[in-house]
């Protein structure tokens, strides 16, 4: 599952990144759930600013991690889709 290249991921109102000092890890806080972020998940969320397209985000991460764009696109698309079905990520088109 991946997203259209031109779609723009948006973190919805009421959802925010938070550093949990007790667990020393980043989490995504939503009204009804909390998602633990691994370092890659955190890196993905940091790229989402509500203006950049999925394609731009994937290319940025592929450059940053020196990894194949196809793999990044697939992994990031699947990750964001997982957040969308949990209603903690929106996509503008």
């Amino acid at each position: 599952m991946t997203l259209p290249a031109a779609s723009i991921p948006v973190i919805p109102r009421g959802v925010r990144l938070h550093h949990d000092k007790v667990r020393n890890q980043w989490v995504l806080l939503a009204p009804e759930r909390t998602i633990s972020l691994d370092p890659i998940g955190h890196a993905i969320l940091l790229e989402i600013d509500g203006t950049r397209t999925f394609e731009t985000i994937a290319r940025t991460l592929a450059d940053k991690y020196d990894a194949p764009l196809d793999q990044i696109t697939s992994d990031v698309g699947e990750y964001l889709h997982g957040l969308m079905i949990r209603r903690i990520m929106d996509v503008a088109t």
Binding site: V27, R33, I35, S36, D38, P39, I40, L61, Y65, D75
Partner: peptide, 12 residues
């Protein structure tokens, strides 16, 4: 840090 497929893990 190398790329590793991210996993969504919910905190109960």
């Amino acid at each position: 840090m190398a790329w590793k497929k991210p996993i969504i893990r919910e905190i109960e």
